[in-house]
Amino acid sequence: MRSPADPPAAEISPDDFFAADIRLGTITRAEPFPEARKPAYKLWIDFGEGVGEKRSSAQITAHYRVEDLPGRRVLAVVNFPPRQIGPVRSEVLVLGVTDSAGHVVLLEVPAHADVANGVGVS
């Protein structure tokens, strides 16, 4: 993760950027993830018809309560290879930024915005 004081990373081409398939999804379910090495939640995210529902884990316990996560509309990379994180197979990378204490804040789209699940970043 980069801090505000870090210089920009090396330049990439537009093709490099667009190779990452970043989509909007709605968290449908969230559970504690007590087996994780660092505090985390297990997430189920609906990306719509083309991608479907995918699972992930996220170290977002500092800013979010598990019961407040369903319904949040988040951005995630859906074309990374799955990773096994303890007993959880993480299928997508949920995107966020870190606050001054190093805790993750989710990148979200407001619930009132008329944007469908599965829409990609453009």
Score class of each variant (00 low, 15 high):
Phe80Leu: 12
Ser3Ala: 12
Val104Tyr: 00
Val119Thr: 13
Gln84Pro: 01
Asp46Tyr: 09
Thr28Lys: 06
Pro34Thr: 08
Val94Cys: 04
Gly102Tyr: 03
Ala76Gly: 07
Val119Cys: 01
Phe17Lys: 11
His63Met: 00
Asp16Phe: 10
Ile22Ser: 01
Thr61Tyr: 03
Ala30Thr: 08
Ala113Lys: 06
Leu75Phe: 14
Ser56Val: 08
Tyr64His: 04
Leu93Pro: 00
Leu24Thr: 00
Ala111Val: 15
Arg29Val: 02
Phe33Tyr: 12
Pro14Met: 14
Val51Asp: 02
Val51Ser: 03
Ile60Asn: 02
Ala111Arg: 15
Asp99His: 09
Gly118Asn: 13
Ala10Glu: 15
Pro8Val: 11
Arg23Ser: 02
Val51Phe: 03
Val51Asn: 03
Ala9Ile: 06
Arg2Leu: 09
Lys54Asn: 00
Arg72Trp: 05
Gly120Phe: 03
Asp46Ser: 13
Leu24Ala: 01
Val66Gly: 13
Arg23Gly: 01
Gln59Pro: 05
Glu49Thr: 13
Ala20Leu: 15
Asp21Arg: 13
Val77Met: 11
Asn117Gln: 11
Ser13Cys: 11
Pro70Gln: 13
Thr98Trp: 01
Glu108Gln: 15
Pro8His: 11
Ala58Pro: 02
Trp44Asn: 05
Tyr41His: 04
Val104Phe: 02
Glu67Tyr: 08
Gly120Ala: 15
Val88Ile: 14
Val66Leu: 14
Arg2Thr: 08
Pro7Lys: 15
Ala40Ile: 10
Ile12Met: 11
Pro110Lys: 14
Val94Ala: 03
Val66Asn: 13
Ser57Ala: 08
Arg55Cys: 05
Gly120Met: 08
Ala76Val: 05
Ala116Gln: 15
Glu35Met: 12
Glu31Trp: 10
Val109Met: 15
Ile22Pro: 00
Ile12Asn: 05
Ala20Glu: 12
Pro110Met: 10
Val88Trp: 01
Asp16Gly: 03
Phe47Ala: 07
His103Gln: 13
Arg73Ile: 01
Pro32Thr: 09
Met1Ala: 14
Lys54Trp: 00
His103Asn: 15
Gly102Ser: 06
Ala30Met: 06
Glu49Phe: 04
Arg2Phe: 10
Arg2Asn: 10
Ala5Arg: 12
Pro70Glu: 13
Tyr41Val: 05
Glu67Phe: 04
Ala116Ile: 10
Pro82Leu: 07
Gly120Cys: 11
Arg89Val: 12
Glu35Ile: 07
Pro87Tyr: 04
Arg89Leu: 09
Leu93Ser: 07
Glu53Phe: 05
Leu106Pro: 04
Arg65Ile: 04
Val115Ser: 04
Val88Met: 06
Ala101Asp: 12
Pro82Lys: 12
Asp68Ala: 13
His112Leu: 09
Pro32Asp: 13
Pro8Thr: 07
Gly48Thr: 10
Val115Asn: 09
Ile22Arg: 01
Ala111Lys: 15
Tyr64Arg: 01
Thr28Trp: 01
